[in-house]
Amino acid sequence: MRRINIPISDEVIRSLHVGEPVLLNGIMVTARDAAHKWMVETFIKKTRPPQGDDLDVYEALKKLLNGGVIYHCGPVVAGLETKEYRFVAAGPTTSIREEPYQADVMRHFNAKGVIGKGGMGAKTLAGCQEVPFVYFHAVGGAASYIAQTVKRVHGVYKLEFGVPEALWVIEVEDFPVTVTMDAHGQSLHALIEEQSQKVLQELIAS
């Protein structure tokens, strides 16, 4: 199986196609609902003034996400009391909730990959072609299994969002994913939606 190192180049992104399984290696950042809303409102649309350590975190994120990967994940983390963090369970969360934000975040930070489950919609797919970036699908619920690929937790930002919603900086080794939305306008999710819609119509008519 093909191994891909983070940061990822545009050339590698364009070489990926829907259906291809790959193993990701390197440093990525978890971000989900609260983080996406916060990034868009504070740094992209600027409808909310930066507060507390927002600007420091922004500087760190700019470095981490340039060519980087965002993981839609709210992990179970051990070692909260000692700050010797360890990922215990870390499968993907449903991605579609970030549909209003994702393409804007990827463009702003020049991020190259987003990992989640369930796929995303038309706005994100258009962003995949433009930025470019790809959507990697991890196996939903495979939390203990995926946590074993997390070799080190480098740190955490915005822990005040709560453990699941914080931005965790993690180093992974051979994290297994499948490309389901590529930079060429293809989406496995759009295809399956369309095919299953046809079957549904036939079943309901009978």
Binding site: V76, V88, G91, A143, A147, Q148, P164
Partner: peptide, 12 residues
């Protein structure tokens, strides 16, 4: 793996 290590099947 979850059963063996007593870790959550799903993080949610």
């Amino acid at each position: 793996l979850s059963r063996q290590n007593s870790t959550p099947i799903c993080q949610d």
